[in-house]
Design a protein around this nucleic acid. Structure first.
Lengths: 194, 194
DNA sequence: GTCTATAAAGGGATAGAC
DNA sequence: GTCTATCCCTTTATAGAC
């Protein structure tokens, strides 16, 4: 059994996801990726035809990691109110504890081309968003479920998205970074909606 | 009176803002900026010491364009509810009609260093955010005004931020891109908060 | 599967003429 | 204030040995 380092595609992708998430596609060089993996840049081309392909696969892996959460957020049988509460907490936790995922998503929405966005909408978020819209409809039948779903996402995602500057804004407290505190705030803001 | 083209710093900055906003700092080259302005790249260095400085000044100009809105959003004397309604509509209109400003802001929050973020928080948004927090406090005295302000911003900004993918999500309608429709939705969502 | 070496292109920036 | 010409560096990507 040889001890030669046999890097797999997945090894590379796992090391690469945080780099793309933190710095963005352009600021990450093939050399930098290679260094993080522990090989030379040229060797990357044995696994991927080019940088774009590497990026796309990293993206797919980062997103597939969370398919479970999205599928399972709606299985539990409970009142709409309890389900919404649970969903918000789950979202807060996800977004708060996996910044890589959130940042990749944000970068894609900003800079992704139409084809990739359509793919994301159809195959990554489609079902999740549909379930969410149904939940919103049962919570607030007089409101546009699409707009409501966006609002819920916005309340959660934007809060953590602007964490870097939130710290400097008047009234900041440490507890504002806590998933549970934020989730409770957002839920209390939505539950009175009629 | 000579007809020689005498490009001013401001001319350059105005042409540059949309480029940085759309593509981001790295994807915009000095040659590309020069072409947009109508001069050669070397000439840019007569006006700015380097690319960073050009970017910072473009940023400042893009943000100063909206200082007025932020200062004036709270002058009118009316009930808190009417003031909130007006603020939300103003924000929606601003974010919807000047995508450059929103995108630059978003990019800064993602990739800006601590020093620049502190500057933004102190000198661009500080007073605005403080006024907003007071308004939130008078609307919902039992809620954390900092969290409430972030929530209002998130409801507005996130909605337009994800416009590129919103189009592909179930339930999308053209009216969801209309400032007034969105503002009304957000206000109706907040006005019942106790 | 990984390496060294290198090609080819594009980037930021400077020098000096006009 | 703008130009041409050029330097120097980094980047992506390929070729071919091991």
């Amino acid at each position: 059994m040889s001890k030669t380092k046999q890097t797999t595609k997945t090894d590379i992708l796992k090391r690469t996801i945080p780099l793309f998430a933190q710095y963005g596609y352009d600021k990450v060089s093939m050399r930098q990726i290679a260094e993080a993996v522990g090989i030379k840049a040229a060797s990357l081309y044995h696994h991927f035809p080019d940088k774009q392909a590497l990026y796309i696969e990293a993206l797919s892996l980062a997103f597939s990691n969370h398919a479970d959460f999205m599928d399972e957020s709606f299985v539990l049988q409970a009142s709409p109110e309890r389900r919404l509460r649970q969903l918000i907490l789950g979202l807060c936790t996800l977004v708060n504890e996996d910044p890589d995922f959130s940042r990749l998503m944000q970068r894609e929405i900003m800079d992704g081309d139409e084809k990739r966005l359509q793919f994301l909408a159809d195959h990554v978020f489609g079902d999740f968003f549909r379930d969410m819209s149904e939940l919103c409809l049962s919570m607030a039948p007089d409101k546009d479920p699409h707009l409501m779903s966006i609002s819920v996402l916005g309340l959660v995602i934007y809060h953590f998205q602007i964490s870097p500057i939130r710290f400097f804004l008047p009234g900041f407290q440490d507890s504002h970074n806590d998933s549970q505190v934020v989730a409770e705030h957002i839920f209390s803001l939505l539950k009175n909606t009629h």
